[in-house]
Design a binder for these strands. Structure first.
Length: 555
DNA sequence: GCCGTTTTCGGCCCGACTGTTTTCAGTCG
């Protein structure tokens, strides 16, 4: 018996918001969207929160929405939603999602033309029914025609994983810094906040020559089309469908713009009302008292002008971080320079001594004190992993200047650990399935140390993940955070942290320059509010080595 | 519909850009 997932609940509330939009409601839609965002970022099932009578503690959930959540949990639907979908043709929601078309236009199509969906809209355009209608010129009609055309294969405007956007973002920044007349260049938006997915990229630069910057930007090889271009802003769409906004600001406003465009929306709304209370105004150009700009060059300045400590982008979600900043109690989140070891380095099965050397060089260059190699086991695809004798020999050498070397065995669920026992590894890496957890974790033998792979189900962390985390806890060195299907995202990391399970951040040692592993893992871990002591490979090799597992038998 | 060391009512971010306009409405972020 499983109720609606958090993701399903959020989708329902978003639909209510869209429907209310079309009906011309003013503030309710935003209220429902706010609740939807909060529900999505929960680290446990709505049902659990409801059972504890704590729904009202979810930001954006008041009397009315609490009642609707309870109704949804009890009956599987929301009568209000049913009523609205009955009132408004569902096809209008699809029209609403077309770029350049909003609630006002969708409503006009419906009321004035009787158009109730994208197909009818297309037919109306083809039949010339929009010609001469007030507000619809030739360009607007052409724009709609384009929006209605099916997207080419492989091109999608959907949100995509952070790790997919990462190399693209790096390449854009690199190109602008090298070839355009810019001083500063950063990516803002949800990318900078380290969200699991990004809908677009917000690039921010300072420059005396915006036109020259736009010229370079428009001609990047990844750019498919320029969607709009003004004096301070240009929007393009890449060949893969990702939208990128580039904004040029003056240096004195860079911090304010970075703050403003990093968001999140909820964080900024809260910041602005705080400013209003103090007789100040915040926008992307600075913090103003009357016409005087009192801050703007750096983010620190902006927050300080509002009486706040600087807040790391990963925490800017209006989940209490502003109160912490006011009280000077913002946590010192784990940083890249805190990382002292990599617990999980894979090499190809035909890897030679020089490949090991390359990883050890990377470790030394980074100042990393310990490296754990996967020397044998069963990989994600079921294939046997075995370190070559040549590579093993290098591990055994222990040259002066080497980081401490550890040897790990990696296993998939159901794989038999016995054939690998003679390897006497320093620890086992266990790859878990999704929920429900199996109690028989391979490798759970006396004194075993574990590094666990756990994935967060798409609908969010639920009881299954919690049970898994509790199951591995006793023997765990840590649970890995990072990109991909078998590591924790920020919500999973947050749940693990609340249960006292240490986290591990993979460094991607020996990977390419644009390898997103470390950056993404670090962002997720920071979004979970983790400090250095929450991270196993940030506490120094001594601390990691000293952590011994409680003896435990496999069930 | 939500929210409150100004409040239980009256606010709710605000500026850029586009297209269709003779001064602005709609969309977007």
């Amino acid at each position: 018996m499983s109720g609606p997932t958090n993701a399903e609940a959020a989708t329902l509330f978003r639909e209510i918001a869209d429907l209310l939009d079309v009906l011309g409601e003013k503030f309710k839609p935003e209220a429902y969207r706010r609740a939807a965002r909060s529900i999505e970022s929960l680290t446990e099932d709505l049902g659990k929160v409801a059972a504890r009578n704590e729904l009202r503690s979810i930001p954006g959930v008041g009397d009315a929405i609490e009642e609707k959540i309870r109704e949804l949990l009890a009956t599987g639907h929301i009568a209000y939603h049913d009523r609205l979908t009955h009132e408004v043709p569902p096809g209008l929601l699809e029209i609403l999602r077309l770029p350049g078309l909003g609630p006002k236009t969708a409503r006009r199509f419906w009321v004035e033309l009787g158009v109730e969906g994208p197909a009818e809209l297309g037919a109306a355009i083809d039949a010339g029914r929009l010609d001469g209608v007030k507000g619809f010129g030739a360009k607007k009609i052409e724009q709609m025609r384009a929006a209605l055309a099916p997207a080419p294969a492989g091109v999608s405007g959907a949100r995509r994983p952070l790790e997919e956007a990462y190399p693209i973002a790096r390449a854009i920044l690199r190109a602008l810094r090298e070839h355009a007349p810019v001083q500063e260049a950063e990516i803002a938006g949800s990318f900078r906040r380290g969200r699991e997915t990004v809908g677009d990229l917000d690039v921010l630069v300072t420059s005396e020559a915006p036109e020259a910057v736009f010229d370079v930007f428009s001609k990047l090889p990844q750019v498919r089309e320029v969607r709009l271009r003004g004096g301070t802003k240009e929007t393009v769409v890449l060949t893969n469908g990702l939208q990128v906004d580039l904004r040029v600001v003056e240096p004195d406003a860079f911090g304010a713009a970075l703050q403003y465009f990093t968001g999140s929306k909820d964080h900024n709304v809260r910041l602005r009302s705080l400013a209003r209370d103090r007789g100040l105004k915040v926008n992307e150009y600075g913090v103003f008292r009357g016409d005087d700009r009192v801050a703007g060059r750096t983010e620190e300045e902006v927050y300080a002008a509002l009486g706040l400590a600087w807040i790391p982008p990963e925490l800017r979600e209006d989940r209490g971080e502003i109160d912490l900043a006011a009280a000077r109690k913002v946590p010192r989140l784990v940083e890249e320079r805190d990382l002292t070891g990599d617990l999980h380095v894979h090499l190809a099965s035909d890897a030679k001594e020089r490949d090991v050397e390359r990883v050890l060089d990377a470790a030394r260059a980074r100042g990393v004190a310990s490296v754990g190699f996967v020397i044998a086991g069963v990989g994600a695809d079921g294939a046997r992993i075995r370190f070559s004798d040549d590579a093993r020999a290098r591990l055994a050498q222990r040259k002066a200047g080497d980081p401490r070397i550890e040897r790990a065995i990696e296993l998939t669920p159901g794989a038999d650990p016995k054939p690998f026992a003679s390897e006497r590894p320093d620890y086992w890496i266990v790859r878990a399935g999704t929920s429900p957890p199996s109690p028989s974790v391979p490798g759970f033998v006396e004194g075993t140390r574990l590094l666990a792979h756990l994935s967060v189900p798409e609908e969010g962390p639920g009881d299954g993940l919690r049970a898994w985390l509790e199951a591995v806890h006793a023997g765990a060195i840590a649970v890995e955070v990072g990109p991909g299907r078998d590591r924790l995202d920020s919500r999973g990391a947050s749940l693990a942290r609340s249960l006292g399970v240490p986290l591990a951040i993979p460094l991607g040692l020996g990977g390419s320059e644009d390898d997103p592993t470390l950056a993404v893992a670090l962002a997720f871990t920071r979004r979970a509010g983790a400090e250095r002591n929450d991270v196993a490979n940030a506490r120094g090799p001594a601390a990691t080595a000293a952590k011994t597992a409680r003896p435990r038998r496999s069930a």
